[in-house]
Amino acid sequence: MIAQNGPIPLDRYMALCLGHPVHGYYRTRDPLGASGDFTTAPEISQIFGELIGLWAAEVWHAMGRPAPCRLVELGPGRGTLMADALRAVSTALPAFAEAIDLHLVETSPVLRRAQAARLDAAGVPATWHEAAGTVPDGPALILANEFFDALPVRQFERTAQGWCERRVGLAPDGARLVLGLDPDPTPGLPATAGTGAILTLPSVALSEMRRLAGRLA
């Protein structure tokens, strides 16, 4: 793509690396645990997910105990957090467990299979979504453990001309990828930073958060 069309912004490059349907990092493997590349709090201790579940039950009670209540998790990993949360609430507040309408936002087929296997014992049927925007309307509790951390970002460097966006392109020999700068500055960014400063803009995360905030509002 870069060879044919030229350099692409960093967020586009990240999105392809992570989510490409054939080669994407999250689409093709289970990245968690000793055999993967990283771990998360739910995989270290069941207490984490249990506390999240009890928090959700308390907030549901404060909301007036709506039924159904959409319990939504963005980027559920292996389903460990949700399994621990459901186990805790089924014991502590069965009425909440009965009111739950469970929705998981996950793009990885590999992780969806892991989530289904992990949640099968919970007895709460789940619906999977490619994006949070397709979760049905209604009262909702939305969990997002380390979800926003992994979303693509835009990056800019302050030059004498202004803020220039970083792009991924090809080295002069055409054999490797390198970072470079858009020659045309991007308007509308803070003017106070000095030359050489780096600005990372989580544009995808901000867009997702605005959609969620709009739903809750």
Score class of each variant (00 low, 15 high):
residue 24 G to M: 07
residue 45 S to C: 13
residue 146 E to W: 01
residue 189 L to E: 11
residue 74 L to H: 08
residue 150 A to D: 10
residue 74 L to R: 12
residue 165 E to T: 07
residue 133 G to R: 11
residue 124 V to E: 04
residue 216 L to A: 13
residue 164 C to T: 13
residue 29 R to T: 08
residue 77 G to Q: 07
residue 217 A to T: 11
residue 82 M to G: 07
residue 129 H to V: 06
residue 78 R to P: 12
residue 177 L to D: 10
residue 58 E to R: 14
residue 15 A to C: 08
residue 167 R to P: 02
residue 49 G to A: 08
residue 72 V to S: 04
residue 27 R to K: 10
residue 67 A to V: 10
residue 11 D to P: 00
residue 15 A to N: 13
residue 32 L to W: 03
residue 216 L to S: 06
residue 120 D to T: 12
residue 99 A to R: 10
residue 114 A to P: 03
residue 191 A to Y: 00
residue 122 A to V: 09
residue 189 L to S: 12
residue 132 A to K: 00
residue 37 D to N: 04
residue 167 R to N: 02
residue 188 G to V: 02
residue 72 V to K: 08
residue 127 T to M: 10
residue 59 V to S: 09
residue 122 A to M: 12
residue 65 R to N: 07
residue 48 F to G: 12
residue 34 A to D: 12
residue 128 W to M: 06
residue 189 L to V: 11
residue 139 P to S: 10
residue 62 A to Q: 15
residue 116 A to T: 14
residue 168 V to K: 06
residue 207 S to T: 09
residue 194 G to P: 04
residue 203 S to F: 00
residue 45 S to V: 08
residue 106 E to L: 01
residue 133 G to Y: 00
residue 192 T to L: 05
residue 178 V to P: 02
residue 214 G to A: 05
residue 50 E to Y: 03
residue 12 R to T: 14
residue 34 A to W: 01
residue 85 A to K: 08
residue 56 A to L: 05
residue 129 H to Y: 08
residue 38 F to L: 07
residue 86 L to H: 11
residue 205 A to M: 03
residue 89 V to W: 01
residue 78 R to L: 12
residue 175 A to E: 14
residue 181 L to I: 11
residue 120 D to S: 14
residue 163 W to F: 08
residue 163 W to E: 10
residue 82 M to P: 06
residue 217 A to V: 11
residue 173 D to M: 02
residue 189 L to D: 11
